[in-house]
């Protein structure tokens, strides 16, 4: 297991370096000039040159990259070209918002998805399945932003059950914080919930047909125990894999959701940075997103081996 984790960590580090190179070269290939954005439309060529020199943009790209890497190793992402704020500060204030939002969305999606999936399997061909299938269809086909707007209109504005926008720090005020995040989390989690539901349903249908479920029934076990310990547990192996693959999409989904609900999160930071060609921020944002993908995948792999004892590396043979 230790060797496995070591290998995975080494691969992750390599992925990060490669991602940093791609994004570094990538942003510089984009049309647009951060110096122009900073100095203003009326700036003279001389002024622009000064700004460029300040930002280090007059150097060659490899030179700039190694300077960036050197600072990065000290935990320094540089300063935003737009506001001058240290990028690390920007990330520290916006990332928690997105993490809370994503975590909340995952929890909602997993619970709703699995419960609906089990219902759909248990009531195959009857009305509860039609309802859950309907939810899944909506979750998969209606875009997030449209659902978000509908939710704000009806649940927030008309009914007044939830706030339409805004963010309260979850750590400082957990109840109010989560309350403010509920609507965005539900909207963000919808498509994931739909995927989980369909996957759970399909996988449960297969599992409930297996020999070991029949044997469990032949033991005289109660229906619930057969369903959960024998059916659901083995179905989750597939579900976990799918969820892992889908989580990446959650982060890009968060960009849109944060925009709709005016949440001061990572998504908003990303969008603003891209529009203003804020190179240091874009680089940092991409690296953080890459890192989160890596962490999520690692977590899924570890979770997978918990659910499925067969692939536990170097098991207790």
């Amino acid at each position: 297991m230790i060797r496995y984790v070591a290998t995975r960590l080494w691969q992750s580090a390599l992925t990060l370096v490669l991602a940093s190179i791609v994004v570094f070269v990538g942003v510089r290939a984009l049309p647009g000039d951060p110096a122009l954005a900073m100095a203003g439309e009326e700036a003279t060529p001389a002024q622009l040159a000064i700004v460029r020199a300040q930002l280090g943009l007059d150097q060659s790209v490899p030179h700039q990259y190694f300077a960036f890497l050197g600072k990065l190793l000290h935990g320094d992402f540089g300063n935003s070209t737009r506001t001058g704020t240290p990028v690390t500060d920007l990330i520290a204030t916006t990332l928690p918002v997105t993490l809370w939002l994503s975590a909340y969305a995952i929890v909602v999606a997993v619970i709703v998805g699995i419960v609906f999936g089990v219902i759909a399997e248990r009531f195959r061909g009857r009305w509860p399945e039609w309802i859950t299938n309907g939810f899944a269809l909506i979750g998969l086909s209606v875009p997030n932003f449209w659902l978000g707007i509908l939710a704000i209109l009806y649940l927030a504005v008309t009914l007044g059950w939830f706030p339409a926008s805004g963010y309260v720090d979850v750590v400082a005020n957990p109840l109010k914080g989560l309350y403010y995040l509920t609507l965005p989390a539900v909207i963000l989690g919808t498509s994931l919930a739909a995927v989980i539901m369909r996957q759970t349903r399909a996988s449960m249908i297969e599992t409930m047909k297996t020999d070991y479920v029949r044997t469990a029934n032949a033991k005289g076990l109660g229906a619930g125990r057969v369903l959960f310990r024998y059916g659901l547990r083995n179905s989750l192996i597939v579900v976990v894999t799918i969820v892992g693959l889908q989580l990446g999409g959650l982060i890009s989904g968060a960009v849109v959701t944060e925009r709709i609900f005016a949440l001061p999160g990572f998504g908003k930071l990303t969008l603003d940075a891209v529009f203003t060609r804020d190179y240091p921020v874009i680089q940092a944002v991409v690296l953080v997103i890459t890192l989160s993908y890596i962490v999520i995948n690692l977590a899924v792999d570890i979770l997978y081996s918990v659910v499925n004892p067969k692939i536990r590396v170097g098991g207790s043979n």
Binding site: T210, D211, Y212, R214, T215, A216, R229, Y230, R233, N234, I237, V307, N308, P309, K310
Partner: peptide, 8 residues
């Protein structure tokens, strides 16, 4: 081979 719950 198929009659025992693999995850238990």
């Amino acid at each position: 081979m198929s009659n025992l719950n693999p995850s238990m």
